[in-house]
Simulated scan of single mutants.
Amino acid sequence: MDRLDITGLPEDPLAAAAHFYSKVMPGIGAEGDLTLVFPAADHTHRAWRLAAIEGLARARVPGRINAVSGGNSATIAAALAYLAAAPGVTGQYLPLDDSGAGGVIPSSP
């Protein structure tokens, strides 16, 4: 699975989406398996990123496309390895958290 790092996106979600659709998306080929690696962003970027990946996934069949965001290099590498080994996964946007899930809180004392 190939990797494409997305850089240079504006902080504003609408401006970031416009930049992605006008500058990045035309350069994405229509063949093969690909994972986009977005920089970390808050929840206001989730909808446009997911919509872009879902649309690209429909256009790439039988190839696959997914996206991850955030995380450190080890976290990104682990996500890329997972996606490469999961041939049925496509059209997914996976925000990464390299700080761990934290402790388990029991539902009763």
Rank of each mutant, 00 (worst) to 15 (best):
residue 1 M to E: 07
residue 4 L to M: 14
residue 5 D to P: 01
residue 7 T to L: 13
residue 8 G to R: 14
residue 11 E to L: 15
residue 11 E to S: 13
residue 12 D to Q: 14
residue 12 D to T: 13
residue 15 A to G: 10
residue 15 A to W: 01
residue 15 A to R: 15
residue 17 A to F: 00
residue 18 A to E: 05
residue 18 A to S: 03
residue 19 H to G: 10
residue 21 Y to R: 12
residue 21 Y to A: 04
residue 22 S to I: 04
residue 24 V to H: 13
residue 25 M to N: 09
residue 26 P to A: 07
residue 26 P to F: 15
residue 27 G to Y: 03
residue 30 A to Y: 11
residue 31 E to R: 15
residue 32 G to W: 07
residue 33 D to S: 08
residue 33 D to Y: 14
residue 35 T to K: 00
residue 35 T to Y: 00
residue 37 V to D: 11
residue 37 V to A: 13
residue 37 V to R: 12
residue 37 V to W: 06
residue 38 F to A: 04
residue 38 F to V: 10
residue 39 P to I: 10
residue 39 P to K: 03
residue 39 P to C: 06
residue 39 P to T: 02
residue 40 A to R: 11
residue 40 A to K: 13
residue 41 A to N: 08
residue 41 A to G: 11
residue 41 A to P: 04
residue 42 D to R: 01
residue 42 D to Q: 01
residue 42 D to K: 00
residue 44 T to Q: 11
residue 45 H to N: 04
residue 47 A to M: 12
residue 47 A to C: 03
residue 48 W to E: 03
residue 49 R to S: 00
residue 50 L to A: 03
residue 50 L to E: 03
residue 50 L to V: 04
residue 50 L to Y: 00
residue 53 I to F: 02
residue 53 I to N: 01
residue 53 I to R: 00
residue 53 I to P: 00
residue 54 E to S: 08
residue 54 E to P: 02
residue 54 E to F: 02
residue 54 E to A: 04
residue 54 E to I: 03
residue 54 E to T: 07
residue 55 G to R: 04
residue 55 G to Y: 02
residue 57 A to F: 12
residue 57 A to L: 06
residue 58 R to E: 05
residue 58 R to K: 11
residue 59 A to H: 03
residue 60 R to K: 06
residue 61 V to S: 06
residue 61 V to K: 10
residue 63 G to Q: 08
residue 63 G to I: 10
residue 64 R to N: 05
residue 65 I to E: 03
residue 65 I to M: 07
residue 65 I to Y: 10
residue 67 A to Y: 07
residue 69 S to A: 14
residue 70 G to M: 14
residue 71 G to N: 05
residue 72 N to F: 01
residue 72 N to D: 15
residue 72 N to V: 00
residue 73 S to E: 15
residue 73 S to F: 11
residue 74 A to W: 07
residue 75 T to M: 12
residue 76 I to P: 01
residue 77 A to F: 01
residue 77 A to E: 14
residue 78 A to R: 15
residue 78 A to G: 14
residue 79 A to D: 07
residue 81 A to N: 11
residue 82 Y to M: 10
residue 83 L to R: 00
residue 84 A to C: 09
residue 85 A to F: 00
residue 85 A to D: 12
residue 85 A to H: 11
residue 87 P to Y: 08
residue 87 P to F: 08
residue 87 P to M: 05
residue 87 P to Q: 06
residue 88 G to S: 06
residue 88 G to H: 12
residue 89 V to L: 09
residue 89 V to K: 00
residue 90 T to S: 09
residue 90 T to A: 01
residue 90 T to Q: 02
residue 91 G to H: 03
residue 93 Y to A: 02
residue 93 Y to K: 03
residue 94 L to P: 04
residue 94 L to R: 06
residue 94 L to T: 06
residue 94 L to Y: 04
residue 95 P to G: 01
residue 96 L to Q: 00
residue 96 L to A: 01
residue 97 D to Q: 12
residue 98 D to R: 07
residue 99 S to H: 12
residue 99 S to C: 05
residue 102 G to Q: 02
residue 104 V to A: 08
residue 104 V to Y: 13
residue 105 I to R: 07
residue 106 P to L: 14
residue 106 P to M: 13
residue 107 S to R: 04
residue 108 S to Q: 14
residue 108 S to N: 09
